[in-house]
């Protein structure tokens, strides 16, 4: 019994030590951070995302974009996040407090997306890119998400307002009389991408020069 207890308490002590140190201490340190109003009349930051953006995040989660894209900007001078235009400042804990699921990510097969809504604000670009990444980014190894779009017969003689406009030389464009439109999931996903912006300052993280 003595041996069992030695191992049991040893194992317990070591894991309690790390759990308290790593998880609980950070929870105590900043588990209660709140959005902050910098100037009177300004909204509080970080902003609360729109309902559509939150739905879009669920699409992002269930398709596993995180396995190729991070959402965190490292400080200027540590890596080249700043120079690559992935964000004008380091991202800090407060930036994430409103997220029910935090998607920091550990892989950059593709660029960081913390600030993509600011960098690429065009809906059409995102739809074309998701439909077939090679259209906007020649040679891209990003997975195509054409299954989030549907091909349909053009009603009357006008394209639907949200139909994708393919470049003239695109080989997989729909045949004459057909168009490609985003499904609801593609629509909300792009709303989510556009909501990803690091365009505000926080007291603890200002834009770098």
């Amino acid at each position: 019994m003595k041996d069992l207890l030695t191992i049991f308490f040893g194992a317990l002590a070591t894991i309690l030590f790390s759990f308290t140190g790593i998880v609980m201490m950070s929870n105590i340190q900043y588990g209660r951070l709140e959005p902050i109003v910098l100037e009177e009349g300004e909204p509080a930051y970080p902003r609360t995302p729109s309902g559509e953006a939150m739905q879009g995040k669920e699409v992002y989660v269930d398709l596993g974009c995180i396995y190729c894209h991070s959402q965190q900007v490292r400080r200027k001078g540590f890596g080249a996040d700043f120079e690559r235009g992935w964000g004008d400042r380091q991202s800090v804990p407060r930036d994430y407090i409103l997220q029910k699921r935090v998607l920091l990510g550990t892989m950059r097969t593709g660029p960081d997306l913390m600030n993509v809504g600011d960098r690429i604000p065009t809906r059409d670009w995102h739809h074309l890119h998701l439909y077939d990444p090679k259209i906007t980014s020649p040679g891209s190894i990003m997975s195509p998400f054409a299954f989030l779009y549907k091909k349909q017969k053009i009603q009357g003689d006008e394209l639907s307002p949200n139909a994708l406009t393919f470049p003239p030389d695109y080989e997989n464009a729909p045949e004459e009389g057909y168009e490609v439109v985003p499904t609801e999931r593609a629509h909300v996903l792009v709303e989510y991408l556009l909501s990803l912006k690091l365009d505000y300052e926080l007291p603890e993280s200002k834009f770098a020069e």
Binding site: F8, F19, I22, Y30, V102
Partner: peptide, 26 residues
């Protein structure tokens, strides 16, 4: 001894009663 601790704690703090912000990532 270790694994049950790890698993239940992580499940709880990430899935069932998510901790705030990047405490989740930690």
């Amino acid at each position: 001894f270790w694994f049950p601790w790890l698993y239940t704690t992580a499940q709880t703090m990430i899935m069932w009663a998510p901790a705030r912000g990047t405490v989740q990532s930690i």
